[in-house]
Amino acid sequence: MQKVFSKVAMIGVAMVLAAPVQAELVLSQAWLRAVPPVSPTMAGYVTVTNTGPDAVAVTGAHTAIAGHVMLHDMSMQEDGTRRMRHLGKVEIPAGASVSFAPGGMHLMLMHLSRVPAAGESVQVCLEQADGEPVCGDFPVSGSAPSEP
């Protein structure tokens, strides 16, 4: 009986060790920039921390208020102009944080069904290459939330 028990226990431990550890994304400092009600687009900002042991690729985002959300990067060119470009994915190394912030990477919400007002909060979900989307509440504000 003891032998059977130890075999089962060993198999159990082996299964736990063999199971892939789910990468975990934690969202913080999330917000949407408040814009006029007739605005065709909105920008979203968030800090994404990968608490898992493996790198994670964020491949997109979605929210109920936008028909389409794109990952964008804004970069300063040598001639002083700013260029926006679409990102297919954003890699977040294990244990690292990546910030989507004004003047840099951001979520571009397009085809808005409505423009939420300042003070509202909207759920936005980030999509991963592997794994379930990670969702968070994005308060609508004229400026970034203050640091915790």
Partner: peptide, 9 residues
């Protein structure tokens, strides 16, 4: 006005 990031800021 379709600029989502810099212009509204």
């Amino acid at each position: 006005t379709h600029c989502p990031d810099i212009c509204p800021a």
